[in-house]
Design a protein around this nucleic acid. Structure first.
Lengths: 240, 240
DNA sequence: CGCGGCTTTGATCCTTGTCAACTACAGTGG
DNA sequence: CCACTGTAGTTGACAAGGATCAAAGCCGCG
């Protein structure tokens, strides 16, 4: 079943939702709000009244080090909820900012509380989504610890490609800067440039007019030793 | 209130539980099972019938790369649930093994399903615990990407110290090998040794007879620029 | 005593960071 | 139309952190 509600489409993957749950989810999607690129959606330490959902574009979780350097710890694509943290943990321990132009939906904290308290299957699906986020984070950790920058870059691109395609977006080309990629990989922009160069020379990607294009996903995956297991895209077990 | 149920003690931090919830939690702790050091609790790809809780000792989440190298993506201390993943995601996308001698409690999947489905506040507390795990993972990512090995090592030690103390265990000395530390930090054992050497020369730690001892937590934190914000140890907001 | 696992140390190589300059290009205002 | 400005990408030379290889020391244990 394909709904136009992208959150429902994503949570449906958890295999835990009934049709009634899906209907309930339709009502939480309010009118989206456009947010330009490179703008904070929520800052470290805040306790805002709304939880945010990405409808279009890409955003990221980030932290700023005492010396001003930035780490990007996660990328958010359409369908991802930015900050369940607000509803559960209370305060944010990191910031969230847009990478490209986005459309964002605000969901009142009270709505999330209601979903968690009175719709156990939706609560379970949100739990599921959080565990998938955690799995991605673990893979990033492995990626950073054990792969050289060019393979690491390739791995990241494979992941973004797949995650975008999984929600029906074009994952072949995206609007992103080398500095943003560097912050995701924990390397310097100069070195990110070298990694891009390597992938370009190998004919795996193209980078013209400031736009990254994946030319050969198959070979890119091979190069990165990419295994999509951790993304849990295939249907989970039906809950009993 | 201090219970001897370490899971209740931990989940209580979420601020979401009633006394009835805490009583219910008491009944899920079965007789613990001793597991020797360096042994798998659960392997990548498995779908076992039980979820596991660490009562004593330390365990870790890990992945093995195609070339045989190991990454440790998380450390589990007493009170931590190893693998809610089993109940929610179905299959494990990583393995879990003991680092030291442990005592483990098995919790049937059906019990977890019941807690999630019929005790919304417990479900919320488990969600809370998962979000804290995720926060730790993000900090590890920053640590690996932006700190050099000696500070990174110091940061890891500060975290383990605090997490152990938070559940009433001794966090000053622990039984761990340099190879295990290296796998956590994404560096080689040889280099981990050099980092240990630096901290030892600075008088921050001691390493005699194969046992790591923290000598000066305050200066260690300073050296690591450690901020415990991300561990969310202080009481979260009371749910309404 | 000897074995095996862990730690320690040194030498050398490779990857990544740093610094610095230069190009390309879009937007702006004259 | 052009000069001016700012941002992003590109390149090269060099420094430094970490990997690799190899060997030796330490220590508990059978």
């Amino acid at each position: 079943m394909h709904r136009d509600n992208i959150m429902a489409r994503k949570l449906e993957c958890s295999g835990a939702l009934s049709d009634a749950d899906l209907d309930r989810l339709d009502t939480v999607i309010a009118e989206p709000r456009p947010v330009p690129a490179r703008q904070d959606i929520i800052r470290h330490g805040e306790r805002p009244e709304n939880v945010h959902l990405v409808l279009d574009g890409m955003a990221c979780r980030y932290k700023i080090m005492p010396d001003g350097r930035r780490s990007i710890m996660a990328v958010l694509v359409p369908g991802d909820i930015c900050d369940i943290h607000i509803a559960i943990l209370g305060r944010m321990d990191h910031g969230i900012a847009t990478l490209s132009d986005c459309r964002i939906v605000d969901i009142p904290r009270s709505t999330v509380d209601e979903l968690l308290g009175e719709y156990p299957r939706i609560a379970r699906a949100l739990f599921w989504a959080t565990l998938v986020d955690e799995a991605v984070l673990r893979e990033w950790l492995v990626n950073m610890g054990k792969r050289r920058s060019d393979r690491q870059m390739a791995h990241l691109l494979c992941e973004l490609h797949l995650r975008l395609e999984a929600v029906g977006r074009d994952g072949d080309r995206f609007e992103i800067t080398q500095e943003q990629l560097a912050d995701m990989l924990g390397i310097t922009p100069v070195h990110a440039q070298r990694a891009v160069g390597t992938l370009r020379e190998a004919g795996l990607i193209d980078w013209t007019s400031g736009r990254l294009t994946i030319l050969d996903v198959g070979r890119l995956r091979e190069f990165a030793e990419f295994d999509d297991d951790y993304l849990h895209l295939r249907q989970a077990r039906r809950s009993s």
